[in-house]
Design a protein around this nucleic acid. Sequence first.
DNA 1: GTTGCAATTGATAATGAGAATCATTATAGT
DNA 2: ACTATAATGATTCTCATTATCAATTGCAAC
Lengths: 146, 146
Amino acid sequence: MAQTNLERQVETRLREHEIRLTEGRRTLIQALGKADGPKSAADLHSRLGDQVPLSSIYRSLSVFEDAGVVSPHYSTKGVTRYELAEWLTGHHHHLVCVNCGVVEDIEIDDRLETQLEAIVEEIGRDVSFAPVDHALEIDGNCRQCQ
Amino acid sequence: MAQTNLERQVETRLREHEIRLTEGRRTLIQALGKADGPKSAADLHSRLGDQVPLSSIYRSLSVFEDAGVVSPHYSTKGVTRYELAEWLTGHHHHLVCVNCGVVEDIEIDDRLETQLEAIVEEIGRDVSFAPVDHALEIDGNCRQCQ
DNA sequence: GTTGCAATTGATAATGAGAATCATTATAGT
DNA sequence: ACTATAATGATTCTCATTATCAATTGCAAC
Ligand SMILES: [Mn+2]
Ligand SMILES: [Mn+2]
Ligand SMILES: [Zn+2]
Ligand SMILES: [Zn+2]
C-alpha cells in the first residue's frame, strides 16, 4: 500500500522524536485525515472497530499530542476531541451545533482571516497580552438542525 | 446585609424557575461576581473553604446552568469552569495563558466587537450555518508569563 | 535476514471530575 | 407556627482518561 503524503509528514515528525509509526498509529492517522472535525477516542474506536483497542487509541493520541501531530479540543462537555495539527491541515476554525453537538471544521477565506488576526493583535496590544494563537468558535444551528 | 444588584437579578431569574436562593447559593453568586474569569468547582471550594461543601458547589452550579445564571467553559483540560451568564456580565471574550493556564475575561470595544460579528455573520452565510453565539479565545502569554 | 533491544501493545486496574442518592434540614407561602 | 417542597451534604456511583506491566513488535545494526 502506497504511503500517503500525510503519512510521510507524520512519519518524519515522529522519527525526530524517536516515536515509531506502527500499524495501529497509521490507521489512526488515516482516520483523522478523513475526519471533517475533531474526534474523540470513542468516536475513533467506534469507527475503527477492534482494529485498534480503546486503550491504545488513548495512548497514541497522547503520544501524537506530545509530538505535535494532533491538537486536543476541549470545547465540548466531558470529552476531549483530537484533530490533526494545523501544520498538517492548515489553520481553520470550528462550528459547534448547539442542537446536535457536532463540531465541524471551517476554513475561512484570507480576507476574513486577515481581519480576524488584526482584531486579535489589537486586543493583545490593548491588554498587554502576547497572542500566539486564536480560536473562533461559532455556536449555532447546523444545516441539519435548522 | 444589603442585597446587591446582581443578587436581585439572580433571585428574580431563579424565582421564575421555582429555585430557591439559599445562603450557600448566595455565597457562590458573590464569589462568581468577584471573579476575573471562569472558575471551577474546585477553585470556588478552595476560595470558600468549608462554607459550601464541594458536592453542593457542583449541584448548585448545575442548577444555575439550567436556569441560565451561569455558563460553563470547557476550554481547558479536565475541568469545567463557570462564570456568570452574559446577560449578567455583558458579552466578553477570553485570554488563555499557554504557560500558566489562567483564563481571563476581556471586554473588547464596540468597534472590534462589531467587526467580529460581521465576520461571524459572513461565515454563517457562506456555509449555511445559523450563528447564535460566538467565542473568540486568544491563546498567548499573560503579563506575568511574558 | 537475523539479532538485540528499546518502543509499543493491550488487557486490566487505578484515578479523578462530576453526577446521583437519600435521609435530614432549610425555605417560603399561608 | 405549619406544611409542602426544595436544598443540603456525606457518601456512593459513573465514566472518561491514565497508569501498569508482561508479552509483542519495529527498527537499525550487523
Ligand atoms: Mn478542526
Ligand atoms: Mn468570562
Ligand atoms: Zn446540528
Ligand atoms: Zn500566564
